[in-house]
Write a protein that binds this DNA or RNA. Sequence first.
DNA 1: CTAATACCCTACTAATTTACTAAGGATTTT
DNA 2: AAAATCCTTAGTAAATTAGTAGGGTATTAG
Lengths: 160, 160
Amino acid sequence: MKLSTKGRYAVTAMMDLAIHDRDGPVTLADISNCQGISLSYLEQLFAKLRQTGLVEGVRGPGGGYRLGKPANQISVADIVVAVDESIDSTRCKGNLDCNKGERCLTHHLWNDLSERLYEFLDGISLSEFIKDPEVRKISRRMDSTASRIANMFPPVSKAS
Amino acid sequence: MKLSTKGRYAVTAMMDLAIHDRDGPVTLADISNCQGISLSYLEQLFAKLRQTGLVEGVRGPGGGYRLGKPANQISVADIVVAVDESIDSTRCKGNLDCNKGERCLTHHLWNDLSERLYEFLDGISLSEFIKDPEVRKISRRMDSTASRIANMFPPVSKAS
DNA sequence: CTAATACCCTACTAATTTACTAAGGATTTT
DNA sequence: AAAATCCTTAGTAAATTAGTAGGGTATTAG
């Protein structure tokens, strides 16, 4: 179990998808704009999320990404594991005999802890965040139609 | 909240200290040998642990490091926070108005999660690991006197 | 008192990972 | 057919992690 900014990006992006799930697919360009992450980097993250079935890509105009399964079946642990490839926990891969079998002990303890952490994060599903009262309030404000209309008037670029 | 190999090194080293607490100070050289981490790197980690009062250095021959407070008052979160300086959670530091106030939402949600994670790790103290039955068994095998005797006969280095 | 032990500190370097860029497909809708 | 959007690969710059080097300083044993 590892946890870095990469994992955070993935989790927040997935939260975004979960919140707007009923509004049809969310484009990576949207997430890129709104969360300040580069498009290509997002594409890399989503490649991994797609491989593990956590999201589903919809091609063509009007396409984007959608959750690969119901929000209540996607845990935070699933997301983190998908993108933050796990730490190689010990130097004595599996065999408990490093250092004459004496103090590899702490590796054993770390594994215990790591497992507990995983279970904790596995117990938190995306659906929990959609229920957050803050979310309901804000996501109503920026309803899908509103954002679609907004997209019809893109920011003016410098005259050529 | 961030979690990398650095944090793992610190946590396992602290477990080591906790297990051998009654045997007097543990030297960094010991930990370095047994866990395969370089001495200087350990010194860097322990500098941070010392600054936050989690450990206490004992100088001179027979010295080493000792827990700075009782094992049940040191949580895994304490250790991780001390060495793995926390992730800068958002681009909109504190002010919730990034991206026209609309989708900074996910940052809020991430903070929620991060806080929950912290609380979880804060609820796990070092003393829990000492109670582990595996630990009692193994640490009895390598009693302090035994390891001290062993230290009097260091491995022979190549003849010069 | 001296020498050995082991903490303590600073600065540098190598390796790895993260974040990003570039550039070109492949699909699907309009 | 053209536009939108996913999809893929390859490369690169920045940051972080891990480790080296080399010098202290305090304390204890002899």
